[in-house]
Amino acid sequence: MIRAAALFSYYDLTLLLEGFLTTFALSLIGCLGGFVLGFAAAILRTTRSRVMAPVRAALFVYAMFLRRVPFLVTLMLVFYATQSLHANLPTFAVASISICLIAAAYLGEITRGGLESVHANQWQGARALNFSHWQTLRYVIVPQAWRVILPPTFGFLVMVIKDTALASQIGVMELTAAGKVLGNKGVPAVLVYGAILMLYFSMSYPLARLGKHVERRLAAARNH
């Protein structure tokens, strides 16, 4: 009981809170950065001109590679690469960059799948109405692709939150690292990691629920 109470000392609680906020910030950066970059990559891959062919090929290779390398390896690669370039980035920045890189690859694929799910007739119809490529995307394709893109996107955003736990390996003081510090201080590991698990859960479960809700709403709208 006394050891259990030690977890809730002022210092420990602030450590946990700081870790929680760092994890939250990392997740937010990863979700937003990954979403914007992934969306841009998917849009670029819808282009048809020959000038853009190398870009499309590069994006294809990028998406295939990054989704087949463990996040830990990507993280370490970015970490050591920035170190050997003598760019003294803080570890938080390194973790943010890695998370954005990997989230862009996954969310880009999800978005591309959504855009491709819209029937080719829609492209032809818009073309017949003299829409430009961007107008077609803006007014015809994206509004329809949205409902295919959103459900798996929420699923992946939960993954982003969970992946941030690996940032503790390069020394970012996020939730998992805070747990390790407390564990080393002698607070029982069951208690520490139980609390950490609950804190992660409190972050990702609402997002997962929101995703389920959106999915149901979209499915209902489609059945009309």
Binding site: T176, G179, G194, F201
Partner: peptide
């Protein structure tokens, strides 16, 4: 299990 990081789950097993 799907809403918590695998890494922390293993920490829990390994140290807890």
């Amino acid at each position: 299990a799907t809403n918590t990081p695998q890494l922390v789950q293993i920490f829990f097993l390994f140290f807890g």
